[in-house]
């Protein structure tokens, strides 16, 4: 490659890092149902002129479940690999008990089972993914139902609502709009084929008679998820001592390598 072309690589690599960042936004922590980018699990993105991508990945503790860690890393690899210019993706999990095992397993294209052949013979990652996808469905659904209840909707009106009407319901508040759209997105995967806006994950209808009990189930799911969410955020911040000052770190932080640098500091300390 000639020198002028290489000089051109700088702005384009920043643009490509931005593309990587955007595509990582579609990868969620299955337990928390939040994007890994918003959870501040992604510490840095490096893109070289050959289309190779290096992603720094961290978790709130050394002990975080290896199955979830693997799942997220594998999802990141898959999401970024789908970008047309990407030739190779390295996901680099740091400061985790199984950093080396997971990084090597992914680099070799191994499955979770093959990577953890000894420890996880029975582990079915697809089943795990399914379980937590259902919880995500329930949590997103609860947020929308709660919104409607707060707006004075009667239970019967909520249960009569169909998908086309939910999809076109005028909503002014952008946060609520996001909740609705996230629910509609997962409703395409779960909840059966009926037109009802609100069904159980398995597609069973909810009736006025079962509504109270059903809602209390959804609430317990939310309580569990929130427990994890609060702890994960608190532990991550305690571990790396880098609380977000003005909201979450911006893309600019990542492109400029500011977050990655801070993370490296933590990394060094951990190994001493």
């Amino acid at each position: 490659m000639s020198t002028p072309a290489f000089a051109d690589a700088a702005p384009s690599s920043a643009a490509r890092a931005a593309e990587v960042w955007a595509s990582l936004g579609s990868v969620t922590d299955p337990e928390l149902d939040e994007p890994v980018t918003e959870l501040r699990f992604v510490t840095g993105i490096e893109v070289d002129a050959e289309g190779r991508v290096h992603i720094g990945f961290r978790l709130p503790t050394y002990w975080c479940a290896a199955n979830f860690a693997f799942l997220m890393a594998d999802d990141m690899r898959a999401a970024v690999s789908s970008l047309p210019w990407v030739r190779q993706v390295t996901v680099d999990l740091r400061d985790h008990m199984y950093s080396d095992t997971i990084n090597q397993g992914l680099a070799r294209g191994h499955s979770f089972k093959a990577t953890f052949a000894e420890e996880a013979a029975d582990e079915d990652l697809d089943e795990l993914r399914r379980t937590f996808r259902i919880k995500a469905y329930q949590r997103r659904q609860e947020a929308v139902i709660r919104h409607l209840l707060d707006r004075g909707w009667a239970v019967t009106d909520i249960l009569d609502l169909d998908l086309p009407h939910l999809a076109t319901l005028p909503i002014a508040d952008p946060e609520t709009l996001k909740l609705r759209d996230r629910y509609l997105e997962i409703r395409r995967e779960w909840g059966g084929t009926s037109d009802n806006a609100f069904t159980s994950a398995e597609g069973e209808p909810v009736t006025p008679a079962t509504f109270g009990e059903y809602l209390s189930l959804l609430r317990r799911v939310r309580i569990n998820t929130e427990f994890n969410g609060h702890l994960c955020r608190g532990l991550l911040q305690a571990r790396y001592d880098d609380a977000p000052t003005e909201g979450e770190p911006t893309l600019a932080d990542f492109i400029a390598g500011r977050v990655a640098k801070r993370e490296m500091g933590g990394h060094d300390q951990c190994r001493k």
Binding site: M97, L231, A238, R239
Partner: peptide, 12 residues
């Protein structure tokens, strides 16, 4: 890492 994690709970 075990005691570090406990400390995380403590400070969080």
């Amino acid at each position: 890492q075990f005691i570090d994690c406990f400390y995380g709970y403590h400070t969080a």
